[in-house]
Design a protein around this nucleic acid. Structure first.
Length: 277
DNA sequence: GCCTGTTTTCCTGCTT
DNA sequence: GAAGCAGGAAAACAGG
């Protein structure tokens, strides 16, 4: 069992092996005041609990709604999304972060001091504090470039609560897009981003029911051509593209709509909602 | 090199 | 008849 005591040398040590395993550190390690909320509630509970955190798995910063909103205007849900993203992105151990301390709105989050972040999450909390300060000072564009983010954070503090291999480029690499950058690596993300980018859309796709996530392919051949260009495949056709779309029915990313050229985002698709909350 | 997930390609049958 | 949809099968491809 790793304890906070065990972590100190790693935090203090500035050279060589600054990686530290926090996998076995429970949230209670940094949770002296946990009694005022459900002591059994953990991040794992939160993210697997439909009531608290409905159907929002696999989210990345780039497609999360909170990236387009200043931290001061975040809701509790945005705060949770952000923390989950940071943990995924920077290999922080979410179990060492106190859920109770971060069950706050963005405004409250922004008013928290560095000491309060440390109290809430130890070295991970401190790291979150630096990331938040970067977002507040540089805006959300900070999150769209992982490499820049790493450099910026490094300027603030040396990461010392990383799980295994320090800051590791991922997430936005594979899903490398801003909400409307059309750099999505997956077809459904490409379609989603096209729907969210009127300037790129050119009437190729249009919403039928924005709230329900129902959209229509208006120019099927143009869509296929665009996707083909994206994948450097000039043999792409709408028939092939639609086959790929139909595979998403299995995974819940798309849902069947019994109308021609009409599709609907499913429970496992994210980032298409105007305002999820 | 293997495994896994995603996408592409081709196909048949059906519906609009 | 053309276009689109449904879904099986296999292959290609990329990332881990």
């Amino acid at each position: 069992m790793t304890t906070a005591e065990d972590l100190r040398p790693a935090q203090a040590g500035g050279t060589g092996e600054r990686r530290v395993m926090l996998d076995s550190v429970t949230h209670s390690t940094f949770l002296p005041n946990a009694s005022f909320c459900d002591p059994l509630m953990s991040w794992t509970d939160l993210f697997s609990n439909e009531e608290y955190y409905p159907a929002f798995e696999h989210q990345t910063a780039c497609d999360a709604y909170w990236t387009s909103v200043h931290p001061e205007y975040w809701t509790k849900r945005h705060v949770w999304d952000w923390i989950q993203f940071c943990c995924d992105q920077y290999k922080l151990d979410i179990n060492c972060i106190s859920f109770c301390h971060f069950n706050v709105s963005g405004l409250q989050l922004c008013s928290m001091t560095q000491e309060e972040f440390v109290e809430a999450g130890g070295v991970c909390g401190e790291y979150l504090y630096f990331i938040l300060q970067n977002i507040r000072s540089q805006g959300c564009s900070f999150l769209n470039d992982v490499e820049e983010s790493k450099v910026a954070i490094k300027d603030y503090a040396e990461p010392s609560c990383l799980k295994t291999s320090g800051v590791k480029s991922q997430g936005c690499h594979s899903h490398g897009h801003s909400r409307t950058s059309l750099q999505s690596s997956h077809l459904w993300e490409f379609v989603r981003d096209l729907l969210l980018s009127p300037e790129e859309n050119c009437g190729i796709l249009e919403w039928e029911d924005r709230e329900q996530g129902i959209f229509r392919v208006v120019k099927s051949e143009a869509l296929a051509k665009m996707w083909g260009q994206r994948k450097k495949n000039d043999r792409m056709t709408y028939e092939k593209l639609s086959r790929a779309l139909r595979y998403y029915y299995k995974t819940g990313i798309l849902e069947r709509v019994d109308r021609r050229l009409v599709y609907k985002f499913g429970r496992n698709a994210h980032g298409w909602q105007e305002d999820k909350l």
